[in-house]
């Protein structure tokens, strides 16, 4: 089996939590010798147009974390959910749906709508994974999709054009270079203020719809802890997906650590450390997987393959 994911020969990309979750899942359930991971970053390889995709044969492939987990279980590989009782099984499936619908919007905000992260990390990282000229239009496309998703929960962003048109109403004429420079500085300043306000909105959403929601659920299920673990069992497929999204949100690679800083103070230190150590443990397993470079004309992400 070959698993195509986002990344390059040096790293797997944190911008796609589902790719990371699928590799983690495979390392936990399938012998390492039975699968190869190809960091092709080529969404066109997936029938649905979105990685990860597990290629089983020339004619058969499975797209997406949930379908891959279901397929592996059907094929008799160890399932992370086999010890769950019926109610927990239902909650685990709901948890996956919840993560894909709700938590994914927080990731979208952090990667694409947060000005600092987008300009200093996300936009640049595509250059590592995609060949010219795809690295330029792909982040813009992803950003517009993220914007549409975030708008559903009231998280919006203003870009330079919006601020500029606002300011032009106030300062209609620009006569000198000094004034132009001053105007650009003001735009930058206003964007920073707006970004901080939006970060607060995102943290508010995180607190109400993620932290408090999961903590109350954990208490209802009769367990202790915060955010993770949710079940009193070994890690489930839902929890694994949750950790992969947290892996992105809490990644030290992101220039703006607003979510990580917030989580550190909003949950107990021991619970935060449990999450971090579990993520580190799962990430250490990534070193064991057999990697293969994508074939240039068939698998890699370039302008010819995109047609």
């Amino acid at each position: 089996m070959e698993l195509h994911v986002w990344g390059n020969h040096l790293e797997f990309a944190i911008i796609d939590p589902e790719s990371i979750a699928t590799i983690w899942y495979l390392t936990e359930t399938v012998p390492t010798s039975e699968f190869t991971v190809i960091p092709s970053s080529n969404n066109n390889l997936a029938k649905t147009g979105r990685l990860p995709t597990l290629v089983i044969s020339q004619n058969q492939s499975i797209d997406g974390y949930i379908s891959i987990v279901r397929y592996l279980s059907l094929k008799g590989y160890k399932s992370l959910d086999e010890k769950l009782n019926q109610e927990e099984r239902a909650i685990n499936q709901s948890l996956i749906t919840f993560i894909k619908n709700e938590v994914s919007k927080i990731v979208d905000y952090s990667l694409y709508l947060n000005k600092k992260n987008y300009e200093n990390y996300t936009r640049a990282i595509f250059g590592k994974y995609l060949a010219f000229p795809l690295q330029y239009n792909t982040p813009i496309l992803f950003k517009s999709k993220a914007k549409a998703r975030c708008e559903l929960i009231g998280l919006t962003i203003d870009d330079n054009v919006d601020i500029e048109s606002d300011m032009l109403n106030q300062i209609p004429t620009i006569s000198s270079k000094i004034q132009k420079l001053k105007r650009e500085q003001m735009i930058e300043y206003k964007l920073l203020i707006k970004n901080s306000k939006n970060n607060m909105k995102c943290l508010n959403y995180l607190q109400l719809n993620f932290i408090e929601f999961l903590n109350k659920l954990i208490r209802e299920l009769g367990h202790k802890g915060e955010i993770y673990p949710i079940f009193n069992q070994e890690m489930t497929s839902g929890e694994l997906l949750l950790l992969s999204y947290l892996n992105t949100l809490l990644s030290p690679q992101l220039p703006d650590q607003f979510i990580s800083n917030y989580l550190k103070v909003s949950i107990k230190e021991e619970n935060y450390n449990t999450i971090i150590s579990k993520i580190e443990e799962l990430n250490s397993n990534l070193l064991k997987v057999i990697k293969r470079q994508p074939k240039l004309w068939k698998e890699s992400a370039n302008i010819f393959n995109s047609f």
Binding site: A90, I91, L217
Partner: peptide, 15 residues
């Protein structure tokens, strides 16, 4: 009141 119910509603509302 129950978050168990709320999370299970995801199965109905989306899937």
């Amino acid at each position: 009141n129950s978050n168990k119910e709320l999370i299970l509603i995801n199965l109905v509302d989306f899937i």
